[in-house]
């Protein structure tokens, strides 16, 4: 029978590849649109309450986008968007919301404590760990600057 080395070379040569042009374009358009929606949320909030400072405005925008990401995950629509857009819908904060809400929904049937709460961070866990660790490091560096 054929040796594994020749076989693996053949597999690498012939394996179907991701269509880069199409997927990159889809990610760019959808990612850009999500950011535009975020900007619109920020602008509308500014119109409604002109007294909001920059930080508060950013926080309100993030909260709204997280809500929208979670809401459309709950409706079962965000995964369809993700299938088309890939990183375009994973990278924005709505994708982060999706990565927490989707395991929570998935493990709903195993109960609140050992299902939803225990499994909620299975996908987003590494992002939170790195986020917290890096912010601590940044804080320490900031202390000495």
């Amino acid at each position: 029978m054929l040796d594994p080395k020749t076989y693996n070379e053949f597999v690498i040569q012939t394996a179907p590849k991701t269509k880069m042009a199409r997927t990159l374009l889809a990610a760019f358009i959808v990612g850009g649109l999500i950011c535009c929606i975020g900007q619109a949320v920020s602008d509308i909030a500014k119109l409604i309450k002109p007294s909001l400072v920059k930080e508060a405005l950013a926080a309100w925008t993030s909260v709204t986008m997280i809500f929208l990401g979670s809401f459309f995950t709950g409706l079962g629509l965000y995964d369809r968007l993700g299938r088309i857009a890939g990183a375009g819908s994973i990278i924005p904060i709505t994708g982060f919301a999706n990565s927490i809400v989707s395991p929570a929904m998935e493990f709903n049937r195993e109960g609140i404590v050992f299902g939803i709460c225990a499994k909620m961070f299975t996908v987003a866990g590494p992002i939170i760990v790195f986020g917290v660790a890096l912010s601590v490091i940044a804080g320490i560096i900031g202390l000495f600057l």
Binding site: T73, Y78, D79, L81, R83, I90, N98, S102, V123
Partner: peptide, 9 residues
Amino acid sequence: FPLELGNQR
């Protein structure tokens, strides 16, 4: 992954 996760195959 969870069914509702927006990733690609």
